[in-house]
């Protein structure tokens, strides 16, 4: 990633492509199965952003996975907005700007790495009904109502499964009071 940012190293960029293009494509196909053109478009758009914005990437703030996930998420939101799913003038980048503005200290950076490791291990052990709900929401981009309808479970069950999963993965700092 550094080589892309500093030296505009094409070989390094090609490596990023090798790793992330299939992930981005699958991420897009998770929402729109069969829409290969849309998926290729998203791959291009995200990786072009990576190329153009590489110098703004800050490794103490987020690992490369997270950075590229947020780019893919934002590109997908903007794509859906352009195509009429969201009627608004607001760009995805505007929505998430406040979260990105925080400068983490060294402690947060280390903590973040631990959290990522723990989540990774925890995901394997999550009950299927919980990981299914997470996949609907994160990968397929479904609203909670849509997830409930597709899984044929009440909306309240979707919410409680998400919360249980977050508790198991220890994602929440404050615990769950609601």
């Amino acid at each position: 990633m550094k080589r892309v940012a500093k030296d505009r190293d094409r070989d390094a960029f090609a490596e990023l492509f090798e790793h992330f293009a299939p992930l981005i494509r699958s991420y897009s196909l998770a929402r729109d199965p069969g829409a290969h053109l849309v998926a290729d478009e998203l791959v291009q758009e995200v990786l072009i952003r990576v190329w153009l914005k590489a110098h703004t990437y800050n490794s103490s703030k987020a690992n490369v996975n997270t950075w590229i996930f947020t780019l893919a998420r934002n590109c997908r939101i903007d794509y859906l907005r352009r195509n009429g799913r969201y009627a608004s003038e607001v760009d995805a980048d505007d929505l998430f700007a406040a979260i990105e503005a925080d400068e983490p200290g060294p402690f947060e950076t280390t903590q973040q790495r631990h959290t990522a490791d723990r989540i990774q291990r925890g995901l394997d052990q999550l009950p299927v009904d919980q990981s299914n709900v997470l996949a609907k929401i994160y990968l397929e981009g479904k609203t909670q109502q849509e997830a409930a309808a597709e899984l044929r479970i009440p909306l309240g069950t979707v919410k409680s499964r998400v919360r249980l999963a977050l508790q198991k993965l220890e994602v929440l700092i404050r615990g769950e009071e609601q």
């Binding site: 299939p22 992930l23 690992n63 973040q112 994160y138 990968l139």
Partner: peptide, 22 residues
Amino acid sequence: RRELQRLELLGAELFSAVAVQR
């Protein structure tokens, strides 16, 4: 904001674990 950053980490892990085809 801190919670959201952690929830983005979760998103990134789900994203990197997605099944891919060549």
